[in-house]
Computed example of a mutant assay.
Amino acid sequence: MTFIKTIRPIEILLVEDSPSDADLTVDAFSEARVLNNLHWVEDGVEALTFLRRQGQYSDVPRPDLILLDLNMPKKDGREVLAEIKADSQLKRIPVIILTTSAAERDILKTYELNGNCYVTKPIDVEQFMSVVKIIEAFWLAVVQLPSE
Rank of each mutant, 00 (worst) to 15 (best):
K74Y: 11
R105S: 06
V60W: 08
L65S: 08
R78K: 13
Y111L: 06
Q89L: 11
F50V: 00
I135S: 09
V119G: 04
I123H: 12
Y118D: 09
N36C: 15
D106A: 01
L48A: 03
A102P: 06
K74D: 08
N116M: 02
G115V: 06
D23P: 00
P94F: 04
I135R: 04
R53T: 06
L51M: 10
D87Y: 11
D87K: 05
L108M: 13
L24A: 09
P63L: 04
L98M: 03
N114D: 10
P61S: 09
P61K: 14
R52S: 14
E31A: 12
N116A: 07
A86W: 01
T120P: 10
L113N: 07
K91A: 12
E112K: 12
R105E: 13
L38K: 11
E42M: 01
L35M: 12
V119F: 08
V60N: 14
A32Q: 03
V131I: 04
V125A: 13
M129E: 12
L70R: 02
Q56C: 05
E126H: 13
L113D: 02
D59Y: 07
T49K: 09
L70A: 08
Y118W: 10
R62V: 11
K133I: 00
A47L: 03
W139T: 01
M129V: 08
H39Y: 15
L90Q: 05
D43R: 00
G44S: 03
Q127T: 03
Y118F: 14
G55Q: 11
A47G: 03
V131S: 12
N36L: 04
E79F: 06
R105V: 00
N71L: 09
I123G: 13
P73F: 03
K85Q: 12
L81N: 02
K75E: 13
W40K: 08
F128E: 02
A86K: 14
